[in-house]
Design a binder for these strands. Structure first.
Lengths: 334, 334
DNA sequence: CTGAAAGCGCTAACAC
DNA sequence: GTGTTAGCGCTTTCAG
């Protein structure tokens, strides 16, 4: 049923090779022949069979992007950037959701199947450093995010500690002294949260403030609702704060919601800073200050590193730091 | 370099077929042999080659999902639902961004390459009815969204007119009389906007209100910033309104932002209703009322229709209406 | 129950 | 410049 190269060749009265040359825009095909072949292609509606091509070339032209959840805005935005940039390299993306599941993350390391993609850009969250170290080496892989990064593997991230310190400092500069940290994990501290918390602590320490662990507002996950509840609970317990530094914008959204419900004005009574600078951040009420990782740059660098691996680089793991900016908006001003 | 079936066969001292049987969990393989083969697989680290398998079976086990933008929250949420449900069918998804580009949408209809996916679930926005009608028939395709739906093609959507009417009615029931419609297109009216506008008009007409075209707040695109600007402009022009029915939640976000900047209270001065019921909607300030399309059901139905096509159904196009709910929250209450 | 062999559609040497 | 042909790794009849 499907039209093959051979069918086109017969129709045009040429050899398979000539058709292939036309399909691949090979130069040195007599214009007359080219035209004849092209019309045979059009008439027959020929479509190259990707699987056959992949089988023989061993290349798929596809890069896997593995993230915890495609509908988590930060990852949606990262995926959009990666996908778009991959297209400029004539590559396509294949997005994988790991849903915070360790087995699913193991599966992306394992590459249980061969010939599906040429490499993978991976934001792990559930894997341990050992998991990563154990991986079957060789397959082109670049890690993004704040997870563990064993020696041999390329990694792109922003400087979370510095960014958290800067955010906290801007709160301190605004005269805030009781700064809560929203997003401490109720169970094990995640890599991401840990680094942001470290920056927060460093800033407080540098300012000569003592650390009040009651200001760690804990959550089980990073849904806005969890942020909202955590802030309510803190207030119920009589914990006093004049600012909240949030682990990410989604928790910050929940915090804003809670503060509004509690009748606390933002930023007058409580200043709020988030992280990720989601597209929606500047339109929240009030517009949300946020750490803005340079997502385009994260995408650009991880693609570059991966392509080098695919093209044969076998050296040691590279560790790249992408830029970020602190976007100061109304939620933390004044 | 890569380990092939043959390598495993040699190592285990059996034929290729036997290895294949083990890989596919074929019954009737002597346990002893199975064990021997399995350990050869493990020792060698055998990974089946997907391209080869696809070439011979003609199946990819992959469904394309084509949407305008993967970082537009509504589509992220749809993609998440589709991807997750496809996994329960042992299918994987391949997400395509068309970026509102007609050529890119044409390309998904065209399927310029063969053997990449077994079918596609497609939310077009830029295609004309003729484009759709002209498509090379035969390839399994299901449309979602409010775009044109020519006779032969399966389509899943919600009843936009009824939903818009219901939303508008709830505003009317709250005593609102000057209800603006935010999201009218400055140039050509999109299918989606058109249907929602129709429902809005019908509700006003049924209530005996006359239509004031000055209440159509126009935009060039659906970014929050466009919604914010449109509301500012309306106020500057002295247009008076006590409610805004928004084409979608992102525009509604911009509207809330504008109203906050203008010092108009929501819902006291102006009630607001959005559309899509994004995850963030219930956490906005104030929580946003919204039409909630049943995304899981949209995913479920479109997958079902597509699988039927893939499994040989060649009948006429089906048109399915998925349910929706009006989520009434603070932004439109009182 | 296991083995041998044909061929999926394409690419790329290698001739001509 | 164009044609011939040998595989890429796997599935799948069909024998045994």
């Amino acid at each position: 049923m499907p039209v093959r190269l051979r069918d086109v060749a017969e129709r045009a009265g040429v050899s398979i090779k000539t058709v292939s040359n036309v399909v691949h825009d090979h130069p040195y095909v007599r214009p007359e022949l080219r035209a004849r072949v092209q019309s045979a292609i059009d008439e027959l509606g020929y479509r190259p069979n990707v699987s056959a091509r992949r089988l023989v070339t061993g290349q798929t032209g596809t890069i896997a992007i593995a993230v915890p959840g495609i509908d988590v805005p930060y990852f949606s935005e990262i995926c959009r950037a990666l996908d778009q940039q991959l297209h400029t390299h004539d590559l396509r993306s294949a997005i994988d959701q790991t849903l915070n599941d360790r087995d699913a993350e193991q599966a992306v390391l394992d590459q249980r199947e061969h010939g599906l993609v040429d490499g993978v850009i991976f934001h792990p969250v559930a894997l341990t450093p050992e998991d990563l170290a154990d991986r079957t080496a060789g397959f082109p892989l670049v890690l993004i995010g704040e997870g563990p990064s064993p020696a041999g593997i390329d990694h792109v991230m922003i400087d979370n500690i510095a960014a958290a310190e800067e955010a906290t400092n801007s709160l301190l500069a605004g005269g805030r002294r009781r700064i809560a940290f929203l997003g401490h994990n109720r169970r094990v501290l995640s890599h991401t949260t840990g680094q942001r918390l470290t920056g927060y602590k460093q800033a407080l320490k540098a300012a000569g403030l003592h650390l009040d662990r009651r200001l760690y507002l804990r959550v089980d996950d990073y849904r806005p609702e969890s942020g909202r509840l955590a802030v309510h609970q803190a207030v119920e317990r009589g914990i006093d704060f004049d600012a909240i530094f949030c682990r990410d914008d989604l928790l910050a959204l929940g915090a804003l919601h809670a503060l509004s419900q509690l009748g606390r004005r933002v930023p007058e009574d409580v200043a709020v800073i988030g992280w990720d600078d989601l597209t929606i951040a500047e339109h929240l009420t009030p517009p949300l200050s946020s750490i803005a990782p340079d997502k385009e740059e994260i995408a650009r660098r991880s693609i570059r590193l991966l392509l080098e691996r695919i093209n044969g680089y076998h050296g040691p793991g590279r560790h790249e730091i992408a830029p970020y900016r602190l976007m100061v908006r109304e939620s933390s001003t004044g």
